[in-house]
Amino acid sequence: MDFTFSEDQLLFRDSVRDFLRAEITPQRNRELWLTDTGRCSALWQQMADMGLCALTVPEQYGGMGMSELDFVLLAEETGYVALSEPLLNTALLATPLLRDCGHAALAAQWLPRIASGDARVIVGLEINTLVEDAHCADLLILERNGALYALTPDQVQLRENPSVDPGRKLFAVEFDGAKAEKIAEGEGALALIEAACNRGALAVAAQALGLAQRMIDISVQYTSERKQFGAPIGSFQAVKHHMANVAYKLEYAKTPLYRAAYSLANSRPQAGVHVSHAKLVACEVADLAAKNSIQVHGAMGYTWEVDLHMFMKRAWAFNSSYGAAGFHKARVAQRIFSDGALLGAGNTF
C-alpha cells in the first residue's frame, strides 16, 4: 500500500508545470482567442518536444507507454493554465483507443505520428453532444449509434457552435457512415466508448482541480493587494472564509482523483465508479471556486479584462462534459445501493 506519487512522477510534473506557466499565460490565451483556429502548431510541437504527446503512446510506436496515473498530475497543470490545445483528448482518449481498438494498421499509421507531435487525433463521444477541436484534427474517431468510425478531415462537415469559454471550440460533425471506416461495433465498441468516456471524465476532473487552484491563487493575490477600509480585503474574515471553503474541499477532491487514475491504469473493476466520484467532486469544487472567486473580486470579477473569467468559464463548461452530474451519480448509486455491495471501513481499496 503506497498512496503517493513517485519522485519521477513529481519531477516531471514540476517541469511540465514550469513550461506551461511560462508559455500559456493568460495573455497568450487571449491572443489565441483572436486567431482563426484558436490553436497553435508551434505550441503543439513544443509540447511534443517535452514528451507530452508521446507519454501514453506504446513504446513499439515510439512512445513511452505510460498510463493515466502518469498523466493525471500533468492534466491538473493543463487545467491550471486553461490550456486549449487538445492535448488531453489526443493523449488520454485517442491514443489508448487506437492502441486498444484492434486495428494494427490504424495504430501503426497514427500512433507514431501522435508521438512525434505530427498529428492531433480527436475522439468525439455522443455523451458530449458536440465534438471539441474537430477543426484541428488530423483524424477524428467518432461515436455514432454504438459504433466507432475513423474519419479524415475531408470526410466530415463541421458546424461551429461558440462556447461561453472563448478557448473552447465545439462542432457538430456530419459524415456519411456508409463511406467512413468503421473501427468497432457491438460489444467491442461499447467497451472502447466506456473506456474513452472514463478517461475523458478523468481528464476533465484533473483539469477542474487545476482550475480551482488557479482561481484560489488569483483571488488570494487580488485580495492581498486590493484595499478597502484601509486594509487589504483579504484580511477580512468573510473573504478569508470564502477561500478557505474552496481550499478544504479541494484537498478532499484530490485523492479521489488519484485513486481513479490508479484504478483506470490498473483496470480495477470499480474504475468507473472511482472516476465518477472524482468527476463529481472535482467539478463541484471548481464551481465553488468560481462562485467565491468572482465574489471576492467585486465588480472587477465581472469583467472581461480581469483574467479570472477564463478560468471560471472553463470550469462552467466542464461541469457537464464527459457526463453531467446525473450520469456520474447514477454510477455511484448503482454501486452503493446494490444488494451485497461491500461497503464501509476496510472496503475502500
Partner: peptide, 16 residues
C-alpha cells in the same frame, strides 16, 4: 450518496 463518497474521500486523504 454524498455521505458515502465524502467518508471515502476522508479515508483516501488520510491514507495518502
Amino acid at each position: 450518496m454524498r455521505a458515502y463518497l465524502d467518508a471515502e474521500a476522508y479515508c483516501l486523504t488520510t491514507y495518502q
